[in-house]
């Protein structure tokens, strides 16, 4: 991959949310390149800032509750400098979004065909009839049986899997070059999840679209993504190719996440547990390695004072030096008294 293939370049992006009259960064000076025709997964636990990242690219945040700085280069322009009207020309046409819950993501009072067409109304000069024709084509494309019939159905008349196909159809209606998929399979049953994964991969191959896949599920990442960026407490801690990452994760957080999953290999054994909880935005310690408080028995000398994301092998980036000294212990730690972890509700 060369620099010419970069589709989206996020540079020093900081997104802060207002909590009690103060702004706290949910994304803290992050950088990421998204290449053409790739699926890059943003992975982390709830509250790590991965959804905020997707919303920042689309300019979806509430303006008064959010502060954004940095640059988001996309096709020769900085999206962050765009006005809302300018962004409306990008949203849906160049970049679109797939949401987690297909039931709530669709307007219950509008037939699905109209919801698919709506974007075309603002982004193309197609006539009403042409739009309908195109919508039916897209329904076909996302493999909906009897597209003409489904066109005039309401969301509640469709099953969960069908609804998610509609949400995908809306996202691809204007053939965008980037799709941000925010937990696209989390609300679905496993067999449907498998089919939606296959569908997204196929669409990506055929339409040459790039996808930013936001998820907490490493299984989905493994099935779908080319590259992975692991996010912890508002920062990327590790970025690399999925294949290499899954065989050899480096950052302590990445390792811990992977080993906490039940799999064929650790059957009957205790699962790895990360001590403590994800810190909330307004109680996060922002100096030094943010993962330090959750590592067992490590001394401060292994961490950098101001950790940076460093390329340790080609295309594989890791934050902080502590990864060199971290081993997953096979024996699981007994759940201990958690005095300090009482979570201050956000």
């Amino acid at each position: 991959m060369s620099n010419d293939d970069i589709l989206l370049q996020v540079e020093d992006l900081t997104t802060s949310f207002r909590i009690d009259e103060q702004f706290y960064p949910a994304n803290d000076h992050i950088n990421l390149d998204v290449y053409e025709n790739e699926i890059v997964a943003i992975v982390g636990e709830s509250g790590c800032g991965k959804s905020a990242f997707g919303h920042s690219i689309m300019g979806m945040h509430h303006q008064e509750q959010t502060k954004i700085s940095g640059k988001i280069h996309f096709k020769g322009a900085d999206l962050l400098s765009y006005s809302n009207t300018q962004l409306n020309k990008v949203r849906g046409k160049e970049i679109s979004m797939i949401f987690q819950d297909p039931l709530t993501a669709l307007n219950p009072l509008m037939i699905v065909g109209k919801q698919i067409e709506e974007g075309m109304k603002y982004h193309t000069k197609l006539s009403k009839n042409k739009r309908k024709q195109k919508a039916i084509e897209i329904l076909n494309e996302v493999k909906i049986p009897q597209p003409e019939r489904v066109y005039s159905q309401y969301p509640h008349e469709l099953s969960g899997g069908m609804r998610q196909r509609i949400v995908i159809a809306i996202a691809i209606a204007c053939e965008p070059s980037l799709i941000i998929a925010d937990e696209p399979t989390t609300a679905l049953d496993v067999t449907i999840q498998a089919r939606i994964i296959d569908l997204l991969k196929e669409l990506k191959r055929r339409m040459k679209t790039s996808i930013i896949l936001i998820t907490h599920d490493l299984g989905v990442v493994s099935e779908m993504a080319d590259r992975i960026a692991v996010m912890y407490a508002g920062e990327f801690v590790e970025i690399g190719e999925v294949k290499r990452f899954l065989k050899n994760p480096l950052h302590p957080y990445s390792k811990s996440l992977l080993y906490s999953l039940p799999s064929k290999n650790n059957q009957g054994e205790k699962l790895h547990v990360i001590k403590g909880v994800v810190p909330s935005l307004n109680h996060l310690q922002r100096q030094g390695c943010r993962f330090k408080p959750r590592m067992n028995g490590t001394d401060d000398s292994i961490h950098e004072e101001t950790p940076t994301l460093r390329e340790v092998e080609k295309g594989h980036w890791v934050r902080c030096t502590c990864y060199k000294h971290f081993q997953i212990e096979n024996s699981h730690q007994v759940v201990e008294e958690e005095k300090d972890d009482v979570f201050q509700g956000q």
């Binding site: 962004l87 990008v90 996202a171």
Partner: peptide
């Protein structure tokens, strides 16, 4: 959520 969907379509 469906308002977000609409916004993400560029409406």
């Amino acid at each position: 959520d469906f308002i977000k969907t609409a916004k993400s379509k560029g409406v």
